Structure formats: C-alpha cells, structure tokens
Amino acid sequence: MLENVRLSVLDLAPIRDQGSIAETFENSVSLARRVEALGYHRYWLAEHHNIDGIASAATAVLIGHIAGKTSTMRVGSGGIMLPNHAPLIIAEQFGTLATLYPDRIDLGLGRAPGTDGETLRALGRSPQAADNFPQMVQELAGYLGDATPRQSVMAIPGQSTKVPLWLLGSSGFSAQLAARLGLPFAFAGHFAPGYMQQAIHLYRDNFQPSAVLEKPYLMLGIPVIAADSDEEAAFLSTTHQQKFLNLLRGRSTRAQAPVEELDWHPHERARVMQMLSAAVVGGPETVRRQLDEFLQGTGADELMINSDFYRPEDRIRSYEIVMDVAQG
C-alpha cells in the first residue's frame, strides 16, 4: 500500500524551548532540502498567529524562502486561512510565487482563523468572516484564472497563473465544499482524527467532477514519529505529547526536550492521546505496518506527514525512515 501513495511534508515551523525563530527557519531549510533529495512530493507550511511555538505566521514569505532554497519539490500552504485576508491579496502573493517558481506552488485554503478571537481582531477581521468562505474561494479562483471580458479588478501578478487550489479541513464543512467544487481535499488528521472518517465519506460521496479533477483526490495529514527502534520512538514522541498537553493547559507550545515520563493527570493523558490517536510511532517495521493499516482504512491518495521532534536531526531521521520503508 505505502509504495503506491505520494508522501509529503507538513512543517509547522516549530520553535524550540530556548531556541530562536532564526534557528527554526534554518531547520526548515535543512529539512526541505533533505526531503526533496529523498523524493517527497510537496512541502507545506501553515498560517498561525500569536502561537509562540510556531514561526510560520508570514506563510507566503516563508513559502518563497523554502522554494528558493529547493529546486524541484512543490511548496505551498497547508494552509492559508482565507477569512483572515482579502482574496485579491492572496492571489497577488501566490501569483507572485507561481511566477517566480513555475509549476511548484500549491495554495491550500482553510476556513478557521488559525488563532484566538483577540488576535483575529488585531488582524482586522470579523469572526463572521468565515461564513463567507465559499464565496471567498470562488473569488480567489477568479483572480487566479483567466480574466473575463467584464472583469474590472485583476490580480497582477496572479491572473492566469492557475495556482492549484486545495481545501483543507478538520470537519465536514470543507470536505463537502471541496466535493461540490471538484477540488482536492486535505484533512487535518494530525490534530482532529476523530472526524476523519466522516470527512472522507462526505468528500467522496458528494464529489462532482470539475475542470480540475475528474475524481476525488484525498490527502490526509498524519503525525509520524519514526526512529531506529520502537523504544527510541516512544521516548522521542514525548516532545509531541508535551506540546499538546501544554496547549490544553494554556502554556507555551515551544518544543520541549523528550522526557522519560510525563507529569499529567489521567484526564489530560486521555485528551492528548485522543488528539494523537492517528499518530504512527515506532521503529521501521512498526511504522511500515501502521502506515499500511492507516492506508487500508482510508484509501488516501497522499499522506502529508507532520513529524514533531526536539532535535532537528531526529526529525530528519524520521523522514528518512518513512521513505526507506515506503521504497521497500
């Protein structure tokens, strides 16, 4: 199964405890170059604001940086939170990227704000902006497609670049919208696995062929912590667990060094493990088996792997192991 799907990378640009944002960007470039050499298909970055453990707020800028440091791999957003922006601005940004890096840029779009209410107000956006998401997607597509005869406002650059659009989601709304518009769909299984099967069925059952796609194309985000042994992977996975635990506690989500044992209450552990229920953690054989089981249960066309480690070299090693087992 695994050898028949595309493998891609979701980089949340993690900031380490006591680390710097400059270090994060250096680590992202190193990872991007390595996974490109390994054969990963695309490399996505996500828009988040006012989260002290994530450095990808200026998503389009960072996409351009990564694209400029690589040469063949597709680079894009997973995603741009469209209600935070005017569609014209996003069309101009990604039209510029697509012009600089032809046939390498993806534009994944999300409906959530990617932040809290106070920060949303600081962005100058209304909480009700998400209600207009379907119309905003259509407007954006118009700015990226060929201009119509009566079109008075054009994205320059942007018009006619036809940057590929994806819809992203963690529930059924975007799955149904992607199906209705005939667009590829990416589900955020790396933090909302409980809704995954429902979203998959909604997307596939309601899909309408379009000029973009004749049949559904499904990408699933999944957390993978791979190491040279099951024991090492279990130890290293505590970095990811600590991040989710601190998120629940309203504390800093900067990456913490792995620990032998977490100090958490049973209800906290249950919540964290629920959010990470799709996670694949283990040595090479365990990773191969769990990824094959995941694909058998979902039929995904592509996996977008998020691997959250404290040490950059452990993150790179995880992606090496996944590609090794995929290539048999």
Rank of each mutant, 00 (worst) to 15 (best):
L2K: 04
E3P: 00
D11V: 01
P14A: 11
I15M: 09
Q18M: 11
S20H: 08
S20L: 13
S20A: 08
T24S: 14
E26L: 11
N27E: 11
V29R: 04
L31R: 08
L31V: 05
L31A: 09
L38Y: 11
L38R: 12
H41K: 14
H41C: 09
W44M: 08
I51T: 06
D52Y: 01
D52A: 03
S56N: 08
S56Y: 10
A60F: 00
V61H: 13
L62I: 15
H65E: 07
I66Q: 03
A67G: 08
S71R: 13
M73P: 04
I80E: 02
M81V: 06
M81K: 07
P83G: 06
N84Y: 03
A98Y: 02
P102Q: 03
R104S: 09
I105T: 12
L107C: 13
G108N: 02
L109T: 10
G110T: 10
A112S: 13
T115Y: 00
D116V: 04
E118C: 00
T119A: 10
L123A: 01
L123E: 11
R125E: 05
P127H: 02
A129W: 00
A130V: 10
D131L: 08
F133N: 00
P134W: 11
Q135H: 12
Q135R: 13
M136C: 05
V137H: 05
V137M: 09
G142V: 02
G145P: 03
D146E: 15
A147V: 12
T148V: 08
P149E: 12
Q151S: 02
M154K: 10
A155W: 08
S160Y: 01
V163T: 14
G172A: 15
F173I: 07
A179K: 03
P184H: 12
F185H: 04
A186E: 09
P193V: 02
G194R: 11
Q197T: 07
I200Q: 03
H201P: 01
D205W: 07
D205M: 09
V212K: 09
V224C: 09
I225E: 01
A227R: 04
D228I: 08
D230M: 01
D230T: 06
A233E: 10
K243P: 00
L245Y: 05
L248S: 05
R249S: 00
R251P: 04
A255P: 10
Q256K: 15
A257T: 15
E260F: 11
D263N: 13
D263E: 13
P266G: 10
A270L: 14
V272K: 03
V280C: 13
V280I: 15
V280T: 12
G282T: 13
G282V: 12
P284W: 12
E285D: 15
V287R: 00
L291K: 06
L291P: 05
E293Q: 11
F294A: 06
F294Q: 08
L295T: 11
T298W: 09
A300H: 06
A300I: 11
A300N: 12
A300T: 08
R311K: 14
R315Y: 03
S318Y: 01
Y319N: 02
Y319M: 00
G328Q: 06
